[in-house]
Computed example of a mutant assay.
Amino acid sequence: MRMMWKVRQLLEDGADPGATDDKGRTALHLAACNGHDQIVQLLLSHGADPDLKDGLGNSPLHLAACTNHIPVVTTLLRRGARVEGLDLAGRTPLHLAKAKLTLLQESHPQCLEAVRVEVKHVIQMLREYLERLGQHEHRARLDDLCSRLQSTSTKEQMDEVTELLATFTSLNVQIQKQEKR
């Protein structure tokens, strides 16, 4: 809460919400990466650019997606952040969500609940992305994955849900690429 007050005070005193550090990051990049949704909202309301890229080509949405800050992803998307924005490696935030799923599949997690939470976050992010892209026809498929996720009790069942989600995410990454051509 104290940080929120400081940011508000700085903005009211005329601080530039688009000011960057030596790596090209703005306060919005840092707030998004750290999951400070209220600060993200405040910065956006003071004119911060949700699509400004840092030195690595990451937008605040890229950073929020790869750190699993769903409320920040939602805020950024609802405030106009570009879903199709690319970082320097040519990845969209959706690619980062897919990479996170791949890591989950390749790891050998000790705690099924931790994987369940991660997969649920990726489903929520994907739901927001697809909503933003206007691809409402996929909502039922994501709802089905959520239901299956809730009923998982073994690593094998979790792997199955994760694989289905990874395949679904890959298809949407491919669709995104085709639409750009």
Rank of each mutant, 00 (worst) to 15 (best):
M1W: 00
R2E: 15
W5A: 14
L10T: 00
G14V: 01
G18E: 13
T20C: 13
K23Y: 14
A27G: 12
N34T: 13
L43N: 04
L44G: 01
D51M: 13
G57V: 04
N58V: 04
L61R: 02
L63C: 10
A65V: 06
A65Q: 05
I70T: 09
P71S: 05
R79K: 10
E84V: 07
E84Y: 03
D87F: 04
L94R: 04
H95V: 01
H95C: 03
A97G: 04
L103G: 15
L104R: 06
Q105D: 00
E113R: 14
V115L: 11
V117N: 10
E118N: 09
E118K: 08
V119C: 03
V119R: 01
H121G: 12
L126G: 01
E128I: 00
E131A: 09
R132S: 15
H136R: 06
H138K: 07
R139Y: 01
A140H: 01
L142P: 05
D144E: 14
L145Y: 04
C146L: 08
C146Q: 11
S147N: 12
T152V: 11
T152Y: 02
S153E: 13
D159M: 12
L164N: 12
A166N: 08
F168C: 09
F168A: 09
S170Q: 15
S170Y: 12
L171D: 15
Q174K: 15
I175T: 14
